[in-house]
Design a protein around this nucleic acid. Structure first.
Lengths: 174, 174
DNA sequence: ATTATTATTGAGACTCATTTTCAATGGTAT
DNA sequence: ATACCATTGAAAATGAGTCTCAATAATAAT
């Protein structure tokens, strides 16, 4: 509690922010929306809609996908989450709370994804924002290439699928 | 010719590279593929499949969308083009030839897109690549925020659509 | 040249993420 | 209470991208 380190606390804080945003916009808060936020803040990982939906379903927190899709823009606007990238044919998000701003290093062959951070980036962001008069709220920096393993394997090496689209990934449920 | 500045020359050079790549991979070159490359190199702008398809159709260069979709991965693999970003619900590409490596500054409200370049980025790329043992072939750096105009207009300001998806953009053809 | 082999093509069917519609529900303010 | 209107779930719609398949064409072998 004092350390404010567990997800319940995080979620509470963020739910509060969200309530403010919602009110300010003249919208209404609902149990569904709070459940979604709680679930998002229960881990520190990237998520996508389908994943989130299934995670919730496993915990008997039943909210329709449509509502998840409808809530996400509100969460982005209120600054609780952000888009991290488009991969495997869909968007991935993460919550911002306590996340050190980080960038991604992606293998275009196997899809492996590392995170790193770099202070230089923050400086550039400020600098460019000032130069063009933009209010910059976030950034995305991705390095694309081949991981040590894939860089060796000839042949497979250069395979490209649009935005890392993974072939034969199915077994979904609705 | 000597200045090598017009698109015909560019396209020719790149078509040559493509032929090599195709041969090396045991595939076959075709008129369709060459037409696609020519068209891509005829401008210096970003493009998406639909746009490219329509541009070609206007010039009576008829190639099916399926073929365009099939050719793009080959072009990426052979290093002629690269994915620049996912926006408005689809991927955007650009050819690499003569493009100074640049980054994007995007307004999340009106979709305005500026380009800038920064040498610092190149250094970071090298540095991180070495650190993690990756062979890095390209990067994407996007700064997201609000342009001077949108930053002022209250209300509209924070509107977010997944990856800048533009509502009511239709009037497509097939 | 002719033929055999096999990659490529266009058309259309298909998949799947995301959005929209619509009727039912439920907060909120008077 | 009552009216108003945002929200919900379910299902239909949309649209980018992929796949299938029969027809065509590039290359290799004859």
């Amino acid at each position: 509690m004092s350390l404010n380190n567990n997800w319940i606390d995080r979620a509470m804080e963020e739910i509060e922010k969200f309530r403010d945003y919602i009110k300010e916009k003249g919208l209404r808060n609902t149990p569904e929306r709070e459940i979604i936020i709680e679930e998002i803040f229960s881990t520190h990982d990237h998520f996508d809609v389908d994943e989130l939906f299934l995670r919730m379903r496993n915990k008997k927190k039943i909210v329709s996908k449509a509502s998840i899709y409808r809530t996400i823009p509100l969460l982005v606007e209120s600054g609780l989450i952000k888009e991290v990238f488009f991969e495997d044919g869909h968007l991935h998000y993460e919550h911002i709370y306590g996340h050190k701003h980080h960038c991604h290093l992606r293998c275009m062959c196997c899809g492996r994804n590392l995170e790193f951070s770099d202070d230089e980036i923050e400086k550039i962001q400020k600098q460019i924002g000032k130069k063009y008069g933009f209010v910059i709220t976030s950034h995305r920096f991705e390095l694309l290439g081949y991981c040590p393993q894939c860089a060796q394997r000839q042949g497979v090496q250069k395979a490209y699928r649009p935005s890392g689209k993974v072939r034969g990934k199915s077994a979904k449920s609705n």
